[in-house]
Amino acid sequence: MSDPTPAPPAAAALVAAPPRIQVTRLLSRYGIIVVFLVLCVALTLANEFFLTWGNWANVLRQTSINGILAIGMTFVILCGGIDLSVGSLLAISGMVAGSLVTGIHAHNPVIAILAGVLTGTVLGSINGLLVARLSVPPFVATLGMLSVGRGLTFIYSDGMPIPNLSMGFRYIGQGDLLRIPMPVVMLLAVFGICYFVLTYTTYGRYVYAVGGSEKSAKTSGISTRLITFSVYMISGALAGLAGQILAARTTSALPQAGISYELDAIAAVVIGGTSLQQGGVGSLVGTLFGALIIGVINNGLDLMGVSSYYQQVIKGIIIVAAVLLDAFTRKRQQ
């Protein structure tokens, strides 16, 4: 309990040496960090620009959207479910906010962002109701929402992008806070809050409990329905937030934004060691590094000018290898 709080992972990555006291414990728990560091060392040797602040700002900025989606996805997968609708919810949330910050009657960007996040939250809650209350299998419920959400996006926007978002709104995608890009600030904030909630609150323990065994959770008096409902709501809200960042980054709300983003989010969660087979196993730190690994691979291969044909193959191999290595390290530690 009296352990010092873990160093922020991004900072750890930059310093390239995690705090001494926790090295062995961290390694046993997160073999994925080893994979991440190995990748970083390899890319540093391969490309002179990889280990520069400018490039890391890129990597983190590019990881922020997938990272935030993956954090929401971790809640859902920990609880034994899956959320396929995040890409669609991201698009409609961005669209709703986008429509509020353009034109003559442009609203305050804060209101627009809240409205966007609320949109994601409401649609995520519908997922939650379907799964928790009506016992629709998560795969089916969120697959339905994937389609409905995308359709609503096109209906809402008539298939057209919304350009010219106000400068204030763009700040969350393009601005800096103390030299740190805003999307990264948001990612770290979301990570910090969610890490605290999952690790140190009763609610967080309940999420693990429900995922581990719904029956025993129920017998222990946990409202499993409420917990299940809540994780889809969280995932929807975070998808909504990611939609704001994407719109601000591209300076326009795009109806085709986020198509197949759910796959990268699920990949990040799985690389991070959260189990798809059995709920209740996994961690947010793993997810964050999973997202970083995907981001670093994309960035590194772009830097080295690897053709997009090879890039897909290499990405796939590294993802599978990362999970293999992680499983291997865990076994040895045990």
Partner: peptide, 24 residues
Amino acid sequence: EMKTANWSRAEALSLMENWLTAHP
């Protein structure tokens, strides 16, 4: 550099960020 961004604005944004770093 010559690479696909699949007609996508978001993909092109990331790709260009990386290129600007690789070829300052």
